[in-house]
């Protein structure tokens, strides 16, 4: 299972139970990457409202299936980090308000940065996509 998450410069994920930002480029990229193995909450599904084949779950991480992608717009528990095959992180490269953040060190949890690429967003000049694997 891969955990897919969007972070600001301070590791922030949410503010007042709402996503910090959104970008259609990320939606398309996630869909192309995950195919039929994309899992998310009902809240996140609104972001992917025109996409079929997504499994909506109640509690993160929704599945531990190998090769599945779990889109996280919530706190990410340590247990999920322990069992994850890898992470796909989209860095907004901006600072947003936050009250839920991702504070777990990937390096200390034996993940290694496999690749990094910059995407040009529709409302973001640069979104950095990182893939981390164990």
């Amino acid at each position: 299972m891969y955990i897919v998450v969007c972070l600001d410069t301070m590791g922030g994920i949410l503010f007042n139970n709402r996503r910090q930002s959104r970008d259609s480029v990320i939606v398309n990229d996630v869909v192309n990457m995950a195919g039929e193995k994309l899992y998310m909450s009902a809240y996140s599904k609104k972001l992917f409202k025109d996409v079929d084949g997504i499994t909506v779950g109640e509690e993160f991480p929704f599945t531990y299936d190998e090769g599945a992608y779990c889109f996280a717009e919530c706190e990410i528990p340590e247990e999920a980090v322990d069992k994850a095959e890898g992470f796909v992180i989209y860095h907004w490269n901006k600072l947003y308000p936050q009250d839920v953040s991702f504070d777990i060190s990937l390096v200390k949890n034996n993940f290694k940065l496999e690749s990094s690429e910059d995407l040009v967003g529709t409302s973001h000049d640069k979104i950095t996509k990182e893939i981390w694997k164990k």
């Binding site: 930002s21 959104r22 259609s24 901006k94 600072l95 308000p97 529709t122 409302s123």
Partner: peptide, 19 residues
Amino acid sequence: NVQGMIPFEDMVGDYVTET
């Protein structure tokens, strides 16, 4: 400016642009 205002401005600006 940097810590207390711009983060909210960017959040709103992104939302309006995307939706």
